[in-house]
Design a protein around this nucleic acid. Structure first.
Lengths: 178, 178
DNA sequence: CCCGAAGACTTCATACCTAAAGTTCGATGT
DNA sequence: ACATCGAACTTTAGGTATGAAGTCTTCGGG
């Protein structure tokens, strides 16, 4: 039998407040307010990935493949990119991209061909079926995402988005220095 | 040579606003406000994982091992748990836990022994070295986390934390129904 | 008392990723 | 022209995850 990561089992964790209380006991210099934000972010992301995983699985693709479809659509028509650029955007090695493209080509989601004007380059292009899968996934995702934020007012959603972007800018800044 | 995921390469992505503009063009029914929140969350988490990965690598452990250390510390003294419970908290299969514990035992971070009062059970216990690694990782993490939120005032941090917890509660609720 | 079922882990086969070495094509300098 | 360097991808080796089957222990009903 399958065990946990099919998303069936409820991910039993201590409550967030409880977790922070224990950390404070075990580690003196802890700002509980910071920890609350960071832990909530981390848990939230895990839950969201589980949710997306269920949705993409229902469409017969994996989250990994969905990431590729998203990147290709984001590049705009005619939905073509090189493996290296895809790898860079997804944070993978080129080797991993090679294998992912193998699989997605076999499934008919993308095509791979050599660039005739520069035969070192390879061009990955979204197929109609790939684009259609992207649309299906997008429809499911937006329904879930709207549901996710249901308890926040429009004003609150705006505030949340703005704060998250400030934090995101901060971490991008930190990492470009390093 | 190593390529991307050592965290060296800058993860070239389109700007968030640009990304949302393209999605709106390609997919009519998109609430840009919701998408902004969700996309920021997703990017933020990837960046944070890269940052944690660098810190744990500098300590000679992996993020995966750090997760185990955290769960054990959270269980409180004497820092013992069974493999299944660890697997449930971390969202892994028991099979994966078995192998992780193998490695961590070999590295001296935990010990594994059979429970003598119920010989089906196994007890994983944090070693002094494991606890010390946890402390080191915690010190590095809190510095980074404080830095991450530096552009937010104390009041803003509180608001952000509260909103994230409301969203987290929502997604936990959604998943417990499913 | 013993048998069968359930529970807790482990083992096995397979999938996908990273790191590093290999291949092929294009650009550069003389 | 030609050799060399560098870029873009692929291949190979090895690690860690999943899913399913296997092992060992405990528990409850004939």
């Amino acid at each position: 039998m399958a065990d946990t990561p099919d998303g069936t089992t409820p991910l039993h964790e201590p409550s967030l407040d409880e977790q922070i209380a224990v950390y404070q006991r075990e580690f003196q210099d802890l700002d509980p307010q910071v920890e609350k934000v960071v832990s909530a972010l981390s848990r939230l992301n895990r839950r969201m990935n589980v949710a997306y995983g269920r949705q993409t699985a229902a469409l017969g693709i994996s989250n990994a493949e969905w990431e590729v479809l998203k990147a290709l659509v984001l590049s705009g028509a005619p939905y073509r990119m090189g493996p290296s650029e895809l790898a860079k955007q997804l944070g993978l090695t080129p080797a991993a991209m090679t294998h992912r493209i193998d699989r997605m080509t076999a499934e008919g989601l993308v095509t791979r061909e050599r660039d005739e004007s520069n035969r070192v380059r390879v061009i990955v292009e979204l197929t109609d079926e790939g684009r259609s899968k992207w649309l299906d996934a997008m429809r499911a995702a937006t329904v879930f995402e709207e549901d996710l934020l249901q308890d926040l007012s429009t004003a609150e959603r705006g505030v949340l988005g703005d704060m998250l972007i400030r934090v995101l800018d901060r971490v991008e800044d930190l990492q470009s220095r390093a």
